[in-house]
Nucleic acid binder design. Sequence first.
DNA 1: TCCTTTAGTATCTTTTTGTATACTATAGCA
DNA 2: TGCTATAGTATACAAAAAGATACTAAAGGA
Lengths: 119, 119
Amino acid sequence: MKPELCKVDQALGILVGKWKPIILLHLFNEGTQRFSELKRLMPEITQKMLTKQLRELEDEDIVNRVVYPQVPPKVEYSISAYGQSLQPVLAVMHEWGTNHASHIAKMKNDYVIGDSLVK
Amino acid sequence: MKPELCKVDQALGILVGKWKPIILLHLFNEGTQRFSELKRLMPEITQKMLTKQLRELEDEDIVNRVVYPQVPPKVEYSISAYGQSLQPVLAVMHEWGTNHASHIAKMKNDYVIGDSLVK
DNA sequence: TCCTTTAGTATCTTTTTGTATACTATAGCA
DNA sequence: TGCTATAGTATACAAAAAGATACTAAAGGA
């Protein structure tokens, strides 16, 4: 396959950002959530960021956004039918990531024990 | 699985950056390459970026770096044995990315045809 | 009447990424 | 002697991503 045809970054574009994987994970785990519920699940995120990430995911047809015309407003987010296709991708990445974390830990450990003390 | 245990970003950390996927792809495709060969394969990248990305991949044990003690210098890069484990991850992402590109194209197209002219 | 709630916007500042450009050492060659 | 080639480093700068903070509308309740 030719490097110029690489579409890895298409997937990457959906997933990168400090918050997108965790937003997706919450929606996959807990199903439909309203804005304030997501915010409560992620106390560290600012509203601006949450709004922005959700809009981007909506633009890519990964999440659905449903607005109820009432006051105070109510807006619900969920993984779209198409968005479900991301699940195996996230699963593979999560699995590799989990393994990688222990690989790196092991490497560093071996190094320290083997050389006893190198910086 | 609990969101706080999500390790997707571990994988993401290896892959993000404007250049990493393409560097990896070149190394997967063409095997061992020296610095200047990689540079020639990616004329747009600056030396600083190429050096930086390669160092980061080396730190994560994804690529091997072999220095030949000669002048002018010769340094060869290749995917490490452990780095091979990334291949299925990249494959899944590439596959999803390819499909996603056409999904989005189709969506936009439908929209324009369906509504004839919006915005 | 004022306070609370919700799902945002609007600005501004900081941090992180990436780019541009110039510079280095040294062997071998003309 | 001066030029080329290689794999970088150093410095300055620009652009993108993220964070902090303040603000909004309008219904319902005290």
